[in-house]
Computed example of a mutant assay.
Amino acid sequence: MESVIQLHRISKVYRNVKAVDQVSLHIKKGEIYGFIGLNGAGKTTTIRMLLGMIRPTEGACYIHQKKVSLRHYPIWRSVGYLVETPHFYPELTVEENLHIYRRLRLISDSGAVEKVMQQLNIMQYADAKAKHLSLGNAQRLGIAKALLPVPDVLILDEPVNGLDPAGIVEVRELLQELAYHHGVTILISSHLLSEVAKIATKIGVLDKGKLVQEIDSSSLHRLLQQRLVIDTRDNDRAVTNLVAAQINEKGLIEVHDQQAIQSPDQIARLLVDKGIPPTRLSVEAEDLEAYFLRILRQEKEAIR
C-alpha cells in the first residue's frame, strides 16, 4: 500500500540550530501515527513543514504522492489540520466562526457546520461568542474546523490539550472511528503519552529533532519492561532470598528476573516457606512514559 503521508529526510535549520534532523516517515491509509517527544523535540516544526507553513532546509514532504508546494495547492482540499492553539474570531459565535471557515475552504454544503458541531458535542455553544469558550471547548472548535472539509488526511498538534477526561475519550473515539471505519489517515502529536498509546497504530519518538525510534502498537507490549512487585512484613529479609531483586523508592521489592516474572506463584511459595509470606504480589509493566524516558536515557548514554 502506498504512503498517504511521506516525509523524505526533512531537516530544518534556524541559524545554527537544527530543529529537525533528517526525519523520514511513511504513513499509510487509515493509520493513526503518534508523535511523542519532549518540548522542543521538533514535533510542531515537523508538522509545520508537512503543512507547507515553513519550508524544509533539506528534504521534501508529500501528501498523496504530491510534493507539498504552492504548485500542488489542490491537495489541501482533503486535508484537515490543527496546529498548536486553535484560531478563531473572538467576537463571533461558534457557528459564525465555522461558517466563515466553511466559506474559506470553499465548502458548499452549509449543513456541514451543524454536522461537525454534533460530532464535537458543541451544539449547545453554537450561539456563544468564541472568546467566552473554555480552553477545552475552544479546542473542540479547533478540531471542528479541521473536520469541516471531511478530510481523508487529518494532522493534529496536541488535539486534546485542555480537554477534560470525558472530552479526551470522546475525541479518541472520534479519531478511531474516522481511521478505522472511514480510512482517514491521521498524524497526531501529544505530550499525553498514555493517550498516544491508546490511540496510535504506530508511534514515532522524536528527540532533539531526530526520529530515534518507531514502534508498532501491536509490538509495544513486548518492548515495555516487566517487573514483579512484592510487599511483605519484612522486605529487607525477603529481598535477600530473591534473585535480581531490589527495594525501590517506595519501599517495595522489585524483581527483574524473567523466570520469577513468569512464575510468581513459585516466588510466593518460596517466601511462605521462609516465613515471610507476601502481602502483595503483582506483575507490572512500565507505561509508555517510562519507556519513552528510558529510550531517551539510552540515547544520551550512546552519544557519550
Rank of each mutant, 00 (worst) to 15 (best):
S3P: 08
Q6W: 01
Q6Y: 07
L7K: 05
L7M: 15
R9V: 07
I10Q: 09
S11F: 06
K12A: 13
Y14F: 15
R15P: 11
V17P: 04
K18I: 13
A19L: 14
V20D: 13
V20C: 08
D21Y: 01
Q22K: 07
Q22W: 01
H26I: 00
G30M: 04
E31Y: 01
E31T: 08
I32M: 03
Y33C: 01
I36D: 08
I36C: 04
G37V: 10
N39C: 07
G40W: 02
G40S: 11
A41L: 10
K43S: 12
K43P: 10
K43D: 13
T44W: 02
T45D: 08
T46L: 06
T46W: 01
R48G: 13
M53A: 14
R55Q: 15
R55N: 12
P56N: 13
T57W: 08
G59T: 03
A60P: 01
C61H: 11
I63D: 12
H64D: 14
K66M: 15
K67M: 15
V68W: 09
V68K: 09
S69W: 06
S69N: 11
R71A: 15
R71F: 06
R71P: 00
H72P: 03
P74V: 03
P74W: 03
P74C: 03
R77D: 15
R77A: 14
V79S: 02
V79D: 07
L82V: 06
L82Y: 01
V83Q: 05
T85Q: 12
T85A: 06
F88W: 01
Y89G: 09
Y89N: 11
P90Q: 04
P90V: 09
E95V: 06
E95N: 08
N97V: 05
N97E: 03
N97P: 02
L98R: 05
H99M: 05
H99P: 02
I100M: 12
I100Y: 04
I100G: 03
R102L: 13
R105H: 14
I107L: 14
D109R: 06
S110R: 13
G111T: 08
G111L: 08
V113Y: 07
K115M: 09
M117T: 07
Q118V: 00
L120C: 10
N121K: 02
I122N: 04
M123P: 01
Y125G: 02
Y125T: 00
Y125K: 09
A128P: 00
K131G: 10
L133T: 12
L133W: 05
S134D: 14
N137V: 07
A138S: 15
Q139L: 06
R140P: 12
L141G: 03
L141P: 02
L141V: 14
G142Y: 02
A144M: 06
K145Y: 00
